[in-house]
């Protein structure tokens, strides 16, 4: 009896909660039916009744097969997070992402060691080990999440699941050369984006001016660390969105109107973030401008109407808006051509 309970438990724990009790009841009845049938056959057998029953139970359960397999049959639908159609892309992207993240962190470590901006070398190395673990885990999770979403929600997959009749007339046109997305494009963007994410996390330590003033090395960061760190989660989030878009481009392999619009839409959060950040006058570190003017032998930037940092911020915003407008026009042109 105990064996049967164990077997049924092993099956039902793999099933959705709402089906468990019903399948348990049915399965128990079925096993008892099978046992009763085999007992009819066994009455002629000479061995002792106790071991007989155990043997019969074992035989019946073996007939039913491995609980995991039986449960899988009860569940019916395919049970994978990422199916064979996109699995090769998944492993490819995963390798790239892990390598780029790991590489970026190592570069960050080396730069920190050289500039000495991150404290003593031992701390830097320990810190890097810590970031490697959390960074690689986060990268792994993110890639898996994106691919699981593609598996679930991509229109093509949904069609396959519904077993729709394949109509050759629905086959997409072979994309014109300019519409094709060569894998190297999104892959390069992904690598760039990942390294940028790592660098962004270390910006207060990296971005600034560094010079050797024998024997000491000097480093003045460009940003106020505290203010920058406040924005960091948003920076990383917008970068993660961009990274997702690149994976989408890789999987799609062609420019479609939807992808182009989505691609443009993804730029909006980064644009907003750029404007917000660059409008914050506390973002920049005053010391860096003082130092630059000292080198230029200008104690006071009298020839600027605006303080230097506000000007820099406006230039960056201008570039950001310009870039967005260019993208928008490109998308619009693509749309017009599509409409023909």
């Amino acid at each position: 009896m105990d064996l049967i309970d164990r077997y049924i438990y092993a099956v039902t724990r793999r099933l959705p909660t709402e089906q468990r009790s019903d399948i348990e009841k049915e399965l128990r009845g079925l096993i008892e039916d099978m046992l009763a049938a085999s007992a009819d056959l066994a009455t002629k057998s000479a061995s002792g009744p106790a071991s007989d029953q155990t043997n019969a139970t074992i035989r019946v359960l073996k007939d039913l097969g491995h609980p995991a397999l039986l449960a899988a049959r009860y569940r019916g639908s395919s049970q994978h997070l990422i199916g064979p159609e996109i699995y090769f892309l998944y492993t490819m992207v995963m390798k790239i992402v892990l390598l780029a993240t790991g590489g970026g962190l190592l570069i960050a470590m080396i730069v920190s060691l050289i500039t000495g901006a991150g404290g003593n070398p031992f701390t830097i190395i320990l810190e890097t080990l810590g970031s490697l673990i959390s960074g690689l885990a986060a990268a792994f999770g993110w890639v898996t999440l994106v691919f699981a979403a593609i598996e679930r929600f991509s229109p093509e997959k949904i069609k396959l699941d519904r077993d729709d009749i394949f109509d050759p007339l629905d086959l997409p046109e072979i994309p014109a050369k300019k519409d094709r997305i060569h894998p190297s494009d999104p892959i390069a963007s992904m690598i760039f984006m990942l390294i940028a994410m790592v660098v962004a996390s270390f910006v207060p330590r990296f971005v600034g001016i560094f010079w050797l003033d024998d024997p000491a090395s000097n480093f003045i960061p460009l940003f106020n660390s505290a203010v920058f760190m406040m924005y960091l989660p948003f920076i990383l989030a917008t970068m993660a969105i961009t990274l997702t878009r690149e994976i989408g481009k890789l999987v799609s392999g062609r420019w479609t109107l939807g992808l182009a619009l989505l691609s443009l839409g993804v730029e909006i959060p980064s644009l907003i973030l750029t404007i917000v950040m660059m409008s914050n006058k506390d973002l920049f570190n005053d010391a860096i401008f003082t130092q630059i003017f000292a080198w230029l032998h200008q104690s006071d930037p009298f020839y600027f109407d605006l303080p230097m940092k506000i000007l820099v911020g406006r230039i960056v915003i201008g570039l950001g808006v310009f870039g967005f407008v260019v993208e928008a026009v490109k998308t619009f042109v693509f749309w017009i051509k599509r409409a023909d």
Binding site: E26, L30, M34, D63, L64, L70, R73, Y74, G76
Partner: peptide, 15 residues
């Protein structure tokens, strides 16, 4: 027919 195939099949046909 294997029992392990039949029982789930019944539920699927019902579904």
């Amino acid at each position: 027919i294997e029992a392990g195939t039949l029982y789930p099949l019944l539920r699927r046909l019902e579904k």
